[in-house]
């Protein structure tokens, strides 16, 4: 098999993943795009491993490791997303901005966080009532 086939497929997949990471707004969709990128890398590694006839099988070993890393990342990542959703009631990347650099003076004071959480709780109540 021509090596260019898997290699081109891999880089195209990777680019699709890059597009997804940049274009998506929902955090879980971003995570899925990252998975696409990682899978592209896996295809690359397997193809190179077979091509090189590597006696150490570094490519396949690294592929297995990458798959495991991806699983670990997605597990932890979803836990984080759910945590954000629970406290902020959103899963959109660009709505999670409470910590940005604020150069304009904001008079909220030390407990702005508390206010945030209360807002979230209120929103939740409204949703439940609706």
């Amino acid at each position: 098999m021509h090596l260019a086939y898997p290699a081109v497929l891999a880089v195209l997949l990777f680019s699709v993943g890059v597009y997804g990471v940049l274009a998506r707004r929902n955090v879980i969709l971003v995570l899925m795009s990252v998975e696409l990128m990682l899978n592209a890398v896996n295809l690359n590694l397997v193809a190179f491993d077979v091509w090189l006839r590597d006696t150490l099988h570094a490519g396949q070993a690294l592929t297995l490791f990458t798959i495991t890393i991806a699983a670990a990342e997605i597990g932890l990542g979803l836990a984080i997303v759910l945590l954000v959703y629970r406290t902020r009631r959103t899963a959109a990347v660009d709505e999670v901005t409470a910590l940005g650099d604020r150069h304009e003076a904001d008079g909220q004071g030390a407990d702005d966080q508390g206010a945030d959480d209360h807002e979230a709780a209120d929103a939740a109540k409204e949703q439940a009532a609706a």
Binding site: V8, V11, F14, S15, Y19, V21, A23, R24, N26
Partner: peptide, 27 residues
């Protein structure tokens, strides 16, 4: 409604650019 963010054109440009570069490189 919250699937895509506003910067889709930019993302598309980056994606296409990276695809073009990488494909040329690999081929």
């Amino acid at each position: 409604p919250d699937a895509d963010s506003g910067n889709r054109p930019a993302a598309l440009a980056v994606g296409l650019a990276s695809a073009a570069t990488l494909v040329t490189l690999v081929v």
